[in-house]
């Protein structure tokens, strides 16, 4: 673990870093200067509480950075109740510190013998496309291409609302079962029912007959 913390401490401007557990306190630390343990514990618990407060407000925090007159304090949640803390001088590149920590996160958790289980919120429909990519299997690229084709055909039938309708039904389709090309006819039939006009339904199905 010290090796991983060293990688962060080597970034210019980083004074030191440590991993703090809400229940066990400081798990490991790497500081160039001698900071009292109760100081880092105190800061660690403040960051943990801040993340708890964020969670209560449905905010998913990737990193928290506090700028003081002499330091930047950076907190990065590794897992529930465990954070990486870095203290940097004012010239440090904070986003680089956060990015490096994110890159090392999996290794750190492995060393802590904890499963990598970052919370993945995502119930809002605005995240549908992101979740589509997350859950799509090996033929995901094919499916994405088909989605675009289906959306175009739907737009020809129902106009500008096609994107919104498509998004709603794809979301439901993914919820029902794992997405696959073989399940596309199921999606197409549901979408066809939304068109209402028999002529336009026929045109829609004809345009996408290779997918049925």
């Amino acid at each position: 673990m010290e090796k991983l913390l060293n990688e962060i401490s080597e970034i210019p401007g980083v004074i030191g870093s440590c991993i703090f557990d809400k229940n066990q306190g400081m798990l490991c630390r790497k500081f160039d200067v001698n900071l009292p343990r109760d100081l880092t514990d105190n800061i660690g618990i403040n960051f943990i509480r801040l993340l708890q407060m964020a969670s209560m407000n449905k905010l998913d925090i990737k990193s928290a950075q506090f700028r003081f007159d002499r330091y930047w304090l950076i907190g990065i949640p590794l897992q529930k109740g465990i954070i990486l803390l870095a203290i940097c001088d004012l010239h440090a590149n904070c986003s680089l510190v956060a990015a490096t920590a994110a890159m090392l996160m999996a290794d750190m958790l492995n060393e802590l013998d904890e499963p990598f289980d970052r919370p993945q919120e995502g119930t809002s429909r605005e995240r549908v496309s992101f979740r589509q990519q997350e859950v799509l299997p090996n033929d995901s690229e094919d499916i994405q291409l088909y989605f675009a084709e289906i959306e175009n055909a739907l737009a020809a039938a129902i106009g500008p609302v096609a994107k919104m309708v498509m998004s709603d039904y794809v979301y439901k389709w993914i919820q029902d079962a794992p997405p696959s090309v073989s399940r596309l006819p199921e999606l197409l039939n549901i979408l066809a029912e939304e068109i209402e006009d028999p002529t336009l339904i026929a045109e829609f199905k004809s345009q996408l007959k290779h997918l049925f």
Binding site: A54, D60, K62, A64, Q65, F66, R67, F68, A98
Partner: peptide, 9 residues
């Protein structure tokens, strides 16, 4: 301080 707080979501 703090003179600035940044929370990346």
């Amino acid at each position: 301080g703090p003179s600035r707080i940044q929370l990346v979501l």
